[in-house]
Design a protein around this nucleic acid. Structure first.
Lengths: 359, 359
DNA sequence: CTGTTAGCGCATTCAA
DNA sequence: TTGAATGCGCTAACAG
């Protein structure tokens, strides 16, 4: 029957003819245990299929070997890579990853954080959405590493991508090709990722002495469904833009789809640079020029940083920030701008151009 | 200082001027608690920032609200969708997902399963790789739902895609287009996914009275790096094939890339059907005809099934198997086969055709 | 080298 | 309606 009591350390002890503490010592290589005794214990464990109860162990010892990981969206390949990087390193260090997906919702995030606190995990790696969550963790004495973006610049550790540098790389590349009207697609700038990328966009323009036309900076918001229509509007309103920098992979997808739908040639009519470098970007025609953030590396370093926190005591400096440098992968979606007059002609032949532009 | 003892239920009790049992009752809505007392307790909890220790709670109660989820590869969008589906439902039911990634490695899988057993989770949802893991879980009285594939057809519950039906759909579509030499790309058939898809491929042929040429069935193995070279060899050795069915998204990617690299036109020279329907498949040219497995739905149903197990006692029939029907999304990568003689001509102009075919 | 004792934080009898 | 006592399974002192 299923009602059978689970086997405990006492069962093992009885079977091996020793006390429970001896079993505990044998299993944890702690203190002295005579070889033959250890062998008997191991044998008993095997035959009983005994697995120690971590709840009891954690309760007694006061810490556990699981770290909480909180990310926004498992289905976004960027986060999936990040999580994979984190998990790999944690596993190497003997820790387990407890992954929770908050969907970018601050309430879910707070709930998840409470769960981690309840579990008494020693640390949490998260892509933070609200600062309340980070604060809660810290208040409970739980180490937190902010990955990818940061909401608490002072207190908690972080590992982020050099967003400004990445955007600068992309824009400088476009400016070098002689583009002057470069649109920037961005979800929002409340997060450091968006803010950094926008800053890079601006500073690259400043370096080149080219003024930024604010009309070319479009905010799509966080709902991915609204992105493509917003791109459509941009294309309608700014017929003379020659290049687009999409601030993340979802926006790149939206831009690419809209350009395709309209029959606008990339890069002949509009050059496109994606932020995030995903597999599909080399499968489409043309292959997309993209900024690789090295998501997995960000994950690995986040895990490393957290583990260092565990090992080095409170002596360690607080608020360590690591920066991972992105790389620009130049492919086929960027080229010198062509004669702009090509564009309206091509667009009228596409079905989507039916609605009259406001210009 | 960090050395401060963590706040426990006793601290809350003291602050509220009641006993610990009253606090416990107030927090769990169990038994009678006078309203004003409850209010005082809540206030104390708030001001102390108290969060109950789940380790202690689980130890006492003997069960927890976390279910283990074990998948092969977080970075594969199919699994990511599956996990997202599982998590959504679990969360709705008040459970948390503890996700571990085994990389398809039986040893890692076994280790993870032991961890779950040690945690005394009430159930595990997994894409199983070895049968030892499933057996271990069952032996420990932990409910397991096999998702996507199954290694234990008798004992444990499962939610899978109707793989044979999906492949049959795809092949029937190709046969209907008058293809007769349809290659099947498959990683391996040790897993039920591959076996089912191959069976569907065969039965569709049988239904149409078309013999299967075994040379057209190629096994790529599990390492994704070896897939594209294997496709290359297939193309060299079988110059007269007119269509390819790729048994998963990785293989579809490999096939697509190889065809592109060789300049072979899809679908004019070779039609391509992907198993798994991912976002990039509608972004490439041509858009890929694909079998959608509804990965998220598989995840949702797996979670539902597990939760039912929790609720309905041992009275429930053992080994429930749910089947999710796949859907064929017909797009632009499949068409009637063209004159085969086009192929060699096109291929000699491609760089990869340098190595002489064995034919 | 090994056994006895105690207690981690909590939920639950059982009395009051 | 509340409090005191008990024990979940385990590890860490402390004796022996």
């Amino acid at each position: 029957m299923q009602t059978r009591r689970r086997t405990t350390i006492a069962d093992v002890a009885a079977r091996a003819g020793v006390s429970t503490s001896t079993v505990s010592r044998a299993l944890n290589d702690r203190g002295y245990v005579a070889s033959p005794v250890r062998a008997r214990v191991i044998a008993a464990v095997q035959s009983l299929g005994y697995v120690p109860d971590v709840n009891a162990r954690n309760l007694r010892v006061g810490s556990r070997m699981d770290v909480g990981v909180l990310i926004s969206d498992l289905r976004n390949p960027f986060y999936a890579e990040l999580a994979a990087g984190i998990e790999g390193r944690l596993r190497e260090a003997g820790y387990h990853m407890l992954l929770v997906n908050d969907g970018g919702d601050p309430d879910e995030e707070l709930a998840a954080v409470r769960t981690f606190a309840a579990m008494r995990v020693p640390g949490v790696i998260m892509t933070p959405v609200g600062d309340a969550a980070v604060a809660t963790l810290i208040r409970h004495g739980i180490h937190v590493v902010q990955a990818d973006r940061v909401v608490d610049p002072a207190g908690a550790d972080s590992v982020t991508s050099a967003n400004d540098a990445g955007a600068r790389l992309a824009v400088r590349h476009l400016l070098g090709l002689a583009h002057e009207r470069i649109a920037m697609l961005i979800d929002e700038t409340a997060w450091t990722t968006g803010a950094g990328r926008l800053a890079g966009y601006r500073s690259a323009h400043a370096d080149a002495g080219i003024p930024v036309d604010e009309e070319l900076i479009v905010f799509t918001g966080l709902q991915s469904a609204s992105a493509q229509p917003r791109v459509a509007r941009l294309l309608d309103e700014q017929p003379d833009l020659t290049a687009i920098l999409a601030a993340n992979n979802l926006l790149a997808q939206a831009a690419f789809n809209e350009l395709q739908d309209r029959g606008i040639l990339i890069p002949q009519q509009v050059s496109l640079v994606a932020y995030d470098d995903l597999a599909w970007m080399t499968m489409v025609v043309p292959k997309l020029t993209a900024v690789s953030q090295h998501a997995q590396e960000i994950g690995r370093r986040s895990a490393d940083l957290l583990i260092s926190r565990f090992q080095n005591g409170p002596g360690w400096p607080a608020g360590v920030s690591l920066l991972v440098q992105p790389t620009l992968m130049i492919r086929d979606s960027t080229d010198r701008p062509a004669d702009r007059r090509l564009q309206p002609a091509a667009r009228t032949s596409a079905p989507h151009a039916a609605s009259p532009p406001s210009a």
